[in-house]
Design a protein around this nucleic acid. Structure first.
Lengths: 114, 114
DNA sequence: ATACTATATTCGAATGTTGGAATATTCAAT
DNA sequence: ATTGAATATTCCAACATTCGAATATAGTAT
């Protein structure tokens, strides 16, 4: 149980572990949006967004509602928004290190080393 | 900026997206532990834990302190513990669905479909 | 029935992650 | 200097994730 709880949490984090999916969740924090609206606001390929939505659906982070032609998505539980809000605080707190970290990840340091 | 913030968050979630790394963070919530103690408590391969610690270090989720022979690890910022605590609440709230979800992921549904 | 719009799925190549085995490093003790 | 204990790193095969391209499905309107 201890272990399957951890697998569960890991799966949720996995679902959140992509910038596009984070963007989707953050957009949905403002309320329900259709897939089309998400695609438009994100300015990315339709298929790509749809794939990311499928991941979020599979892990039940979002719920969806069909309305005629369209599918409206919403975050299933506001706890997830709280998690992202905490991450925002974390980021602000460690802004400097975070920037360096991002730079290094690109192999392109923000601040040259000594 | 908007986007690199999201990449940053995604990277943190990625670092958390493994049961073993979650277990490590949760063990460290009780305070500093040496790598050896972590290995013992987790009952896994030394190399494996060390690799997971390397991931957590790279994303700066943990800090480490050398003391002679040993290396002591600690969670860098309690915000991360709060994130995991929220996940615990989320899990409890959605326990039933979560179990089914875990089951399906194994290809082994908890409740057979009619 | 046909055509159109919105969304989802499948496929494949590129890329990333994982764990074990083997090896390397670092410090302490003799 | 050598040995031993604690930890880290490298290499590699298996597996998972990502994206775009193409295709499929579902609903609406004609």
């Amino acid at each position: 149980m201890q272990d399957s709880l951890r697998r569960f949490k890991a799966d949720i984090f996995q679902a959140l572990a992509h910038p596009t999916r984070i963007a989707i969740i953050e957009l949905l924090a403002g309320g329900e949006l259709s897939a089309g609206e998400l695609i438009e606001k994100l300015g990315m390929e339709q298929a790509n967004i749809s794939q990311h939505l499928a991941v979020l659906r599979a892990k039940q982070l979002v719920v969806n509602r069909k309305a005629g032609n369209q599918v409206f998505y919403a975050v299933r539980d506001p706890i997830i928004n709280k998690v992202l809000a905490l991450m925002r605080r974390y980021f602000q707190k460690h802004l400097k290190e975070a920037l360096e970290l991002l730079g290094e990840m690109d192999g392109d340091p923000v601040v040259p080393r000594h």
